[in-house]
Design a protein around this nucleic acid. Structure first.
Length: 466
RNA sequence: GGUGCCAUAGCCAAGCGGUAAGGCGAAGGUCUGCAAAACCUUUAUUCCCCGGUUCAAAUCCGGGUGGCACCUCCA
């Protein structure tokens, strides 16, 4: 598999540290609010990456943190009149609600910063001991100039960074670029004991401490949004490699932004949509479909119209899934004929194309194209008397692709009795050519959230998923 | 000032040197009591513009034009 590595700015062949295993870390949310659609992109992308590795037989350890202590957490908790940990508890719960609705599986581990204070302190102490960090008045800063290749991820020299750096108010720092590893307690803030007095960890250090705690000092993949390149990931490298003297991460992956009207969506601009808001209007699987329909490194615009397009596309996928179940009902236990064999071969070709696309730096857009090529073969099969082997063959391919992308997650349940009764009554009405009654029943069934279609083999009913 | 990214049909979007995937939408046809779904056909002789390299360029190089991002909390 080829992966675009932000560190080298090239696609590279993926070679795991440990054969057969993948260790990956993705920066999770700061749990002070519902997460927005921009946050959702990396969650979905890396969930797909994880699923793909698993489908290729890798044993994946996937770590995604919760940042549960920082300025925004403290501010929000104060506004709400609750403790920081109560706030965290609430929005961690909300994270899982939204994530589940988007088909994002829980990570192997979801570590929280506040539960790893000893590891964080140990790491900071190590940096201080090595002369890479220094304490001032209860704060501890990283001495950026003491680390050889600071800024490699950004492709910027220290001096270039310096010229762009804002003149800090924190003049206790030796250099404007130095960043906080530990912040001394201010009145009313939660704090933990440390060798430098009471305080709390800075943002960057938690990811270094927690990733290495669960994945080792050198691991395979670290992901996040492009805006994390600097300073967050740049600082993580400085902290981790400064402490261990070893390479921290082999492959850095960064997803592009979600834009609104071609402008970056961000908390500071206020032009963002939370996933929770969108869920009131659209099924969140549609959002997943939307995200995967473009390459993860490209910027994508978000709009109602685009979500609607994604919904239509997904509908076709569900139609194919349901068609396969329908075909099974009328399938024959015989060997595939020439036409069916051709469809099976085309299905295999589509799967091969799908895997090749995923192997090419997780090209989900191309992979979805392959999936639709399979869909076309499914719909071309004769509605009745088709070879069961052929149906099962295509079904297996579809399920495999859908499983990797995390799509088609809605179950097709048994029809409720009242719907069943209407369908049966309509069959009778149609037999009697009572079109009026027949149409009334179809309308009622539609209103109840089901899609009824007349086919050569009789009525076909399925739940409207989206 | 420094560092990058992007420009493909009405919309979205692959493509990474060998003669334009796929989806949405639209039009016509088939099937149907009607509808829906599906199937068939049509919808980019051309990939922002100008040069260059090559037998061959949407793809590589140079120069424009237009848009975006990072260097500051942010996925």
């Amino acid at each position: 598999m080829q992966i675009y590595n932000s560190l080298t700015r090239k696609k590279e062949e993926f070679v795991p540290v440990e054969a057969g295993k993948v260790h990956m870390y993705v920066c999770g949310p700061t749990v002070y609010n519902y997460f927005h659609i921009g946050n959702a992109r990396p969650f979905i992308i890396f969930d797909v990456l994880r699923r793909y590795f698993e489908s290729r037989g890798y044993d994946v350890t996937f770590v995604q943190n919760f940042t549960d202590i920082d300025d925004k957490m403290i501010q929000r908790a104060n506004e709400e009149g609750i403790t920081v940990s109560q706030l965290a508890e609430r929005f961690i719960g909300e994270y899982f609600t939204d994530a589940k609705a988007m088909g994002i599986r829980p990570a192997t581990v979801h570590p929280r910063a506040t539960e790893h204070i000893p590891q964080i302190i140990e790491l900071i102490q190590h940096l201080v001991d090595k002369g890479l960090a220094y304490a001032v008045n209860g704060d501890v800063y990283y001495r950026v100039r003491a680390f050889d290749h600071y800024g490699q991820l950004l492709n910027q020299s220290l001096d270039d960074l310096e010229s762009g750096a804002r003149v800090g108010v924190e003049d206790m720092k030796e250099d404007p670029l130095d960043f906080a590893l530990w912040k001394a307690q201010k009145p009313g803030e939660p704090a933990w004991d440390s060798p430098w007095g009471k305080g709390r960890p800075g943002w960057h250090i938690e990811c270094s401490a927690m990733s290495m705690a669960y994945l080792g000092e050198t691991f395979d993949i670290h992901g996040g949004g492009k805006d994390l390149l600097f300073p967050h990931h740049t600082n993580e490298i400085a902290q981790s490699e400064g402490a261990t003297g070893k390479p921290y991460v082999h492959y850095w992956m960064h997803n592009g932004f979600i834009n609104i009207d071609n402008e970056k969506m961000s908390k500071s601009k206020g032009n963002f949509f939370t996933v929770r808001d969108i869920s009131k209007e659209y099924d969140l699987e549609t959002v997943r479909m939307f995200m995967l329909s473009a390459h993860y490194r490209s910027p994508v615009n978000f709009s109602r119209d685009l979500i609607a397009q994604a919904a239509s596309s997904l509908q076709r996928l569900y139609g194919a899934r349901d068609q396969l179940m329908f075909l099974q009902g009328g399938a024959a236990d015989r060997a595939p004929n020439a036409v069916e064999q051709a469809a099976m071969d085309a299905g295999d070709a589509a799967l091969a194309k799908f895997n090749a696309a995923m192997d090419d730096d997780l090209n989900t857009a191309d992979a979805i194209g392959a999936m639709f090529e399979l869909v076309r073969e499914i719909f071309k099969l004769s509605p009745t008397g088709v070879s069961r082997d052929a149906v099962l063959h295509l079904q297996q391919r579809l399920e495999q692709m859908a499983g990797v992308l995390g799509l088609l997650t809605k179950q097709a349940d048994e029809l409720p009795a009242d719907i069943r009764a209407m369908v049966d009554e309509r069959a009778q009405a149609r037999k009697e050519k009572n079109w009026k009654r027949s149409d009334e029943l179809r309308d009622a069934i539609t209103t109840a959230g089901y899609i009824l279609e007349d086919t050569a083999a009789g009525q076909k009913v399925r739940k409207r998923e989206l």
